[in-house]
Design a protein around this nucleic acid. Structure first.
Lengths: 204, 204
DNA sequence: ACTAGACAACCATTACCTTTTTTGTAAAGT
DNA sequence: ACTTTACAAAAAAGGTAATGGTTGTCTAGT
């Protein structure tokens, strides 16, 4: 009767397990991934995996939740990385959210969205909303004045644009490097009319 | 031995036929669309269809080419519509290119990109490149000065962003109306730092 | 410039059966 | 906190054969 780890990433071993599981789920999708596949990738036996999770559904739910939570953690970190420009921090956030899976998603993984919606109850929508809010806050905090203020564009609109473009690029770029490169252009375009508060510039 | 109409949309009847064909291809994809399906949608017999096109491949190729050409015609028209603002003209161009298929694409139509690449020899890439160039020209012609010029953002970068965002929205919007609404935000964000030449504003 | 009917060849779908894989449980060991 | 072996039940995969749909051609008609 394994405790279905309520809060996820306290345990580093469990965290590694769920990272491995996500890799496999991204390659094969939910249906075509077997418990043996995940066990092998994670470097433990199938029964060792069942020790942690009673069912494939429970494993998947925990995997998705851990994936979302670690993504949110990483994007929060990226967004507030000290000594970096707003541009670099936003780029880091997109690289660790949308760019995270570029080149890792297999052709048979089309059922992942459906499965995660069904098994993890709309977690994606919520995460997206929170990501949106985080980006708005981040930009607003860094902006001193908006050279295009009179045009009626608000930060939320800017974030909408960033998100739409990142999703477009996610589908059409073949490598994470290409995604990052093209996303940099997008971020620059969207941030261009903003006058930022005095802060240290990027050095990376 | 039907002449595989070299230049497409001279004939209005043929144009209608190819429009109907595209609707069916978008619903069912290339493989799952039968010649009967197209004939029925176009309102003629299957043999009448064979009178125009020897093979399904030839029909598909002509359909894609006609679709691309009419799209380019419409976008060119939209982009130079007199009396409308740059914003409205760009929005019109995106509505008639990317927005054109929103809500019309069926789940089984995933093979269309592959088929058109294979049978129409990279026509999509070329069309995309030309669309990019058209947008750059359109924006450059309407711009008097760029308030964010010092940021190193050029018009091509702006167009990259518009295209990336339009592709992101294309996948995530359920109606053409929603696409247009969200694309309007994107266009506003991207054009915000531009100071336009004196011209009549939109009234629509 | 088409329609109607018929036709062989081919392709896709279905049904059915057999074999393999996978799930989830359990026991015993380290 | 695992591993290995074992096992029943369920699901998926593989093989095969019949069935139905689709393609492309032909002929005859309007």
């Amino acid at each position: 009767m394994p405790t279905v780890s309520p809060s996820a990433n306290d345990n580093p071993k469990l965290s590694q397990l769920l990272d491995a599981a996500m890799d496999v789920f991204l390659r094969f999708g939910f249906k075509k991934t077997s418990m043996s596949d995940v066990a092998e990738e994670a470097g433990l036996s199938r029964q060792g995996l069942y020790f942690h999770f009673d069912t494939k559904e429970a494993l998947f739910k925990a995997t998705i939740e851990h994936w979302i939570h670690s993504m949110q953690q990483e994007t929060r970190d990226a967004v507030s990385e000290p000594g970096k420009s707003l541009e670099a921090r936003l780029l880091g956030a997109f690289d660790r959210s949308m760019g995270r899976t570029v080149g890792k998603v297999g052709a048979e993984a089309f059922d992942l969205a459906e499965a995660s919606d069904q098994l993890a109850d709309g977690i994606m929508e919520r995460a997206l909303g929170q990501f949106h809010a985080l980006l708005v806050r981040t930009i607003d905090e860094a902006v001193a004045s908006d050279l295009s203020a009179k045009s009626g564009v608000c930060t939320s609109d800017r974030v909408d644009t960033l998100l739409a473009a990142s999703m477009g690029l996610k589908h059409r770029t073949e490598s994470r490097e290409a995604f990052r490169r093209q996303m940099l252009t997008v971020v620059r375009v969207v941030l261009a009319p903003l006058k930022l508060k005095a802060a240290s510039k990027a050095r990376s």
